[in-house]
């Protein structure tokens, strides 16, 4: 066998080895690369299904079974901490004011998204008398009550864009914090607690 034939065989074997390694890597990693995200989740006896962008579960209040849509499932919001406690006064209000600072223009769209999700659950399945409010006056807030956590005679939920996601409950006020879409994550954590789905 000539030297050139030897080189040819070695090259062929080298290519085969590389191909084998590539095939092995594809077989090994493909499932994790192409693994579909789960579309159902079971949590604390509740079944969740993803439809479009939202997670749905069913929740009964009185005689009716509601389909509750939230952006995150309970497993996704477990890392959002709830700190503090609410007074009993919070649970028996004439109204719950959902408030935000209208002067933080760059974060308003995230606040609007979180507020929409929160108010739908409050006035829908949870059957609370929730109302829009603002923490300061502005053109957008014309006609809305000005309320914040200093109004201790009122039940208040204050949505605050902040770097860390958390829920702080104190007296008659709940401050829900999060950055951009994470604000909705904190809202969902709070709602799961209220629905009794999470402890």
């Amino acid at each position: 066998m000539s030297e050139s034939e030897n080189k040819g065989i070695l090259r062929f074997l080298g290519i085969c080895a590389v191909l084998c390694i590539l095939i092995f890597l594809i077989i090994w990693y493909a499932p994790s690369i192409f693994k579909a995200k789960p579309t159902t989740v079971e949590y604390n006896g509740f079944h969740f299904e993803k439809v479009g962008a939202l997670w749905y579960t069913q929740w009964q209040n009185g005689p009716y079974v509601y389909n509750v849509p939230l952006r995150y499932n309970p497993e996704e919001v477990q890392d959002v901490k709830i700190i503090g406690e609410l007074s009993d006064k919070f649970n028996d209000p004439e109204k719950i004011y959902v408030t935000f600072d209208p002067n933080q223009n760059d974060t308003l769209k995230w606040v609007a998204l979180a507020k929409g999700e929160l108010i739908w659950s409050l006035i829908g399945p949870l059957q609370k008398n929730a109302t829009d409010a603002c923490s300061a006056s502005s053109a957008e807030c014309e006609g809305f009550p000005i309320v914040d956590c200093s109004n201790t005679d009122k039940s208040v939920i204050y949505l605050v864009p902040a770097k860390t996601s958390k829920v702080i409950a104190e007296g008659t006020c709940v401050v829900i914090e999060g950055s951009e879409i994470e604000l909705t994550k904190s809202v969902d954590r709070f709602l799961y607690q209220w629905y009794g789905i999470m402890k």
Partner: peptide, 8 residues
């Protein structure tokens, strides 16, 4: 308030 995780 009743929670109903039952499905059919």
């Amino acid at each position: 308030m009743i929670y109903n995780p039952e499905f059919d």
